[in-house]
């Protein structure tokens, strides 16, 4: 092997290993996104891409715009009074705020789980799982199958299979949160947004939800807002760190693989935050 050939193969090898591990196509992407409530700018210039079938954690102190950000990803933001936005959100390559886009379709493709478990109290467990079909007017005939499949995916089936007709309010907080995950899954979303889904739950329930998240990420893309650093490390492939300086809109300070953000952050503020020095 000549020297030139050897150098070439070294370059080739270097290239091969410098590329991050295989990353799927991008499913959802925010481009240059800025968000307002009336005249108050709460987010500025956010660029974030969410690769297909991965989990991305959004971390940062309270009030830095993380929850607002995920509400822009499925067009829930616009339902709040005074809401405004600039930039684009691309879902499967198309702007979800485009003039021909139906917000109902967007919200069905990009589901949401909230901080506080919020099953519908007037419905049974089964009714809750199927409520998305009713609310959105989707027609499906295989209701039994949907109920079983989504409850299995949400890790709740064994606990509730004998009492599907019971009121959802009978379940514990952790079970209710898994029920609303099942409810979100029943309309077959491609993306699931989760806004601090475990902040109201005890550690055991939290671990169950995290298992569920790992399991679900084989088939769907998950974006999770969390204040729990260990949770981000446990569940997320990627992490983005949001921060808002005083009286300034929130910005993404750093983003990348979770191992990088926590193990080798490039920005001093990220390092301070993930080590619990503020926030």
């Amino acid at each position: 092997m000549s020297t030139a050939e050897f150098e070439q193969s070294v370059v080739a090898l270097e290239q091969e290993f410098s590329v991050p591990a295989q990353q799927g196509p991008v499913e959802l992407e925010a481009r240059d996104l800025s968000v307002w409530f009336n005249s108050r700018k709460v987010l500025e210039g956010v660029n974030l891409a969410f690769p297909k079938n991965t989990v991305t954690a959004l971390i940062g102190p309270s009030g830095c715009g993380k929850s607002t950000f995920i509400r822009t990803l499925n067009r829930l933001h616009e339902l709040l009074p005074g809401a405004a936005l600039a930039g684009e959100v691309l879902y499967e390559g198309e702007d979800i705020y485009g003039p021909t886009k139906d917000p109902v379709h967007i919200r069905l493709s990009i589901g949401m789980v909230f901080q506080k478990p919020n099953p519908f109290p007037s419905m049974t467990i089964r009714g809750n799982v199927l409520s998305g079909l009713k609310l959105s007017g989707m027609k499906r005939s295989n209701h039994d199958e949907i109920v079983e499949q989504t409850l299995i995916s949400a890790g709740l089936w064994n606990e509730v299979k004998d009492r599907l007709g019971h009121a959802a309010g009978e379940l514990s907080g952790g079970q209710q949160q898994r029920l609303v995950i099942a409810r979100a899954l029943a309309v077959q979303p491609h993306v699931l947004l989760m806004d601090e889904p475990c902040s109201a739950l005890d550690p055991a329930s939290t671990l169950k939800i995290e298992e569920t998240i790992r399991e679900l990420s084989k088939d769907i893309t998950i974006v999770i807002v969390t204040h729990n650093m260990q949770q981000a490390v446990r569940v997320a492939d990627y992490t983005a760190f949001f921060l808002a300086a005083e009286n300034e809109p929130g910005r993404v300070i750093e983003q990348g693989r979770t191992t990088e953000i926590f193990g080798n952050p490039q920005d001093q503020r990220t390092l301070d935050y993930v080590n619990g020095r503020f926030g």
Binding site: R107, M112, F114, A184
Partner: peptide, 26 residues
């Protein structure tokens, strides 16, 4: 409760379905 309305909105409700399945039963 606003969180129920939020849930309905995230499941692609219309005003009518939100009323019929969430607000009126509640």
């Amino acid at each position: 409760p606003p969180e129920l309305i939020n849930a309905a909105e995230s499941l692609g409700c219309s005003l009518w379905t939100m009323l019929r399945y969430v607000a009126l039963p509640y």
